[in-house]
């Protein structure tokens, strides 16, 4: 068995549909400018359309055009909105495949770094079991909200961004960057479950969140250990984590901003071992990117153009 696989080598059964990661990459680097956002997504339109074909996201695409991701990512989950069910399933599905990739990432850390200290291997082995439970939990929660595995396309952006070949960078990216993001998302899910009075969801996610704090702690400990006496490597690991934090803020969708779709879970992060300085950095990193108004306006324009294109091609077809 070789070491260091590529994200496109993650094996899936026939239910799953892979999405090109380019769209996610572009989304993470959008500026606060309506025209730029519209232009970037128009360019990705053929790829986005291909990615959603045959999935439950197809009606969303037909309704909103290539900007449907802006709508789903940037608006907070609102139980009273008409698309609440689809959006909840979309988020659940995103978390479900994220957990799957977290399981695969932890497993690969066992194989890719055979000379790592024993305690590191123990932590990664434990994380494999934890992520396994998370996959199982979210598969059930997905069904609980009326969804199913493979209903939306899967992006392997998470695995791609975080799986560095240097163990110090990998734990910084996966266990501090992505697991930190998981803390934010799961705290938000708990709030949502409380708002709709769903005790099953609240309790399951509460347990998952507890596990994720442990995983962040693994990351905090191992970044320190792997970079002991090597300030340059430590700085590289920190920089890598900042990059991951930036990529996974989806242009301010996860941030401290008042219009954030996913607020940052400050208290959970503190408990998990993030320092005040790191939290200040996170505040800054996630602050820029398009505002919700920019995203809304871009989404409106994209939808208009999409419907105009559909109308034009229908006319051509009838002529």
């Amino acid at each position: 068995m070789k070491s260091f696989i590529e994200p496109n080598e993650l094996a899936r059964d026939s239910r799953f549909i892979r999405q090109d990661n380019v769209a996610a990459t572009i989304l993470s680097t959008l500026p606060d400018d309506v025209d730029a956002v519209v232009e970037a997504l128009e360019r990705l339109d053929p790829m986005i359309e291909k990615g959603v074909r045959g999935t439950e996201a197809e009606p969303l695409y037909e309704e909103y055009g290539p900007g449907f991701a802006l709508v789903t990512l940037n608006e907070p989950l609102d139980p009273t909105s008409p698309s609440a069910g689809t959006r909840l399933a979309l988020r659940m599905h995103g978390i479900f495949v994220g957990e799957l990739q977290a399981l695969e990432g932890a497993g690969r850390s066992l194989w890719d770094f055979p000379d790592a200290p024993w305690e590191f291997k123990m932590n990664m082995a434990r994380q494999c079991w934890d992520e396994t439970r998370h996959v199982q939990i979210y598969e059930k929660l997905l069904e609980h909200v009326g969804g199913y595995a493979g209903m939306f396309p899967e992006s392997t952006f998470l695995f791609e961004c975080a799986c560095s070949d240097d163990p110090a960078l990998r734990v910084a990216g996966v266990n501090r960057g992505l697991e930190g993001l998981a803390c934010d998302v799961f705290r938000d899910m708990i709030r949502y479950a409380e708002a709709i009075g769903d005790e099953t969801m609240r309790q399951a996610v509460d347990y998952v969140l507890a596990d994720e704090l442990t995983h962040v702690r693994f990351g905090s400990d191992w970044v320190k250990e792997f970079t002991k006496g090597d300030p340059e490597r430590y700085e590289k690991a920190q920089e890598f984590r900042r990059k991951v934090d930036k990529q996974f803020s989806f242009g301010g969708a996860r941030s401290e901003r008042e219009d954030a779709a996913i607020p940052i879970a400050w208290e959970d992060r503190r408990e998990a071992g993030f320092t005040e300085q790191e939290l200040d950095e996170l505040r800054e990193i996630t602050a820029d990117g398009p505002s919700r108004d920019t995203m809304r306006e871009a989404a409106r324009q994209l939808r208009e153009r999409h419907h105009a294109r559909r109308a034009a091609s229908a006319e051509r077809a009838s002529a």
Partner: peptide, 17 residues
């Protein structure tokens, strides 16, 4: 640990964890 990523069958992946 290495295989989890390259096994397509979901129950096998999760069973291995």
């Amino acid at each position: 640990g290495g295989w989890v990523a390259t096994i397509p069958e979901l129950p096998v992946k999760t069973g291995l964890g």
